[in-house]
Design a protein around this nucleic acid. Structure first.
Lengths: 212, 212
DNA sequence: ACTATGAATTTTGAATACAAAATATTACAT
DNA sequence: ATGTAATATTTTGTATTCAAAATTCATAGT
């Protein structure tokens, strides 16, 4: 058996992202390092390392002498992030192995259709959406780009949980996923990339109307 | 007078990037934390924080139990990075305030021409190039995008110092800078964005031929 | 009652100490 | 001489301690 041995800072980072996704942390609120470390059962050192990592990804802000806090949310920033991810994912799609896309297209289409029917709770849906995008970009040959997308998406996690299970949003998204998959089935990469951009831009506008 | 008070980790990060730009660190070599901390006159704690930040930016790799090392260079990764920065800077240009670009265009053109004449040493040229791109994107309204570009470019710093003062490379770059500025003078944003992409793609191919 | 000033407390930032893992060295056997 | 096992040393990963900054609280003055 291969026992897991990862640095604590990474495990902590993951745990914090999980809690963030559950909406455990109020935005724009200071983090008490000692309290959080105690709660997680670790010392402040690896916790601070995780916090610094998250600050680098834009999830947290750090102020000299005042420690870390979850960055405040704003429609403006959400727009900026969507704009970035749209461009990056479109690029990733264009840099993907065509053979991979051909293979993945039917599966992507099937998942998009399952998605429409799925009436599971919000968190499950989010996971489903992430998985779909991962599958879509699984054939991208630019490793650095994939890492970057993961990192930028982490910064968006502060927003996703704010959008309480609006099933209409999700159904629209599923529809767009299907459009993307269909373009891929037709071998129309450029069309798929365009549809992918639309997916982000539309999703953005839909979601923004739900924010504070 | 406003005295500067930044966290040590940031100052250390900047110093390490400076040294990296000077070629002080051999790529693919382990970093000895105690030794480096001693050299910098700080303790291991803020040094490690800086190292973790740099690892997040892709400048360093970290391996469990083996610490940090400067990531190895490869043509493949350099291509990936150029591809990403090209897309991001083009996006930033498209998201810039047109009024700003109109104002900046003459200055960009002038700088590009000075650049051609400039026969200063490599490091100075690099700085000049950075400044030019900063001025070019200074009107971008997407703050997150600008941060991201800075971060990705940091990851490229490992490569720039490998390209020993090839003046022909620089002259070609200056020519392309002029082309971009000219498009902006003509109010042709899309043409400028295209020229910017070309600048990166051509620069990449030119540089790659110089790498190990 | 409200503000301003200063001490007490809390919290972060940085250094040091300790534990565990990895690397290097030595001793030994083939 | 070469390879392997045991041990010593180094180095990282984590915890703890200390110092400095920020915050809170109390008190005095208006």
């Amino acid at each position: 058996m291969a026992i897991e041995r990862r640095p604590l800072r990474e495990q902590i980072r993951d745990e914090l992202m999980l809690r963030l996704g559950r909406g455990d942390f109020a935005a724009d609120t200071d983090i008490n390092e000692a309290a959080l470390a105690g709660e997680l059962g670790v010392s402040r050192t690896p916790l601070r390392e995780a916090l610094i990592t998250l600050a680098g990804e834009g999830v947290l802000q750090s102020n000299q002498g005042r420690g870390f806090r979850f960055a405040p949310v704003s429609r403006q920033e959400f727009r900026e992030l969507c704009d970035i991810v749209a461009a990056l994912e479109a690029l990733a799609l264009r840099r993907s192995d065509p053979a991979y896309l051909e293979r993945a297209a039917p599966q992507l289409l099937r998942l998009a259709e399952e998605f429409t029917a799925d009436v599971a709770e919000r968190q499950h849906i989010e996971h489903h959406d992430d998985e779909w995008h991962d599958l879509l970009l699984g054939g991208c040959t630019n490793e650095r780009l994939l890492d970057l997308i993961t990192s930028v998406k982490a910064g968006m996690r502060r927003y996703t949980h704010l959008l309480s299970g609006e099933t209409t949003l999700m159904e629209r998204a599923a529809e767009e996923h299907r459009r993307i998959a269909e373009r891929l089935m037709a071998g129309d990469l450029e069309g798929a990339a365009e549809a992918l951009r639309d997916n982000w831009v539309n999703g953005m506008e839909r979601m923004i109307s739900q924010l504070p």
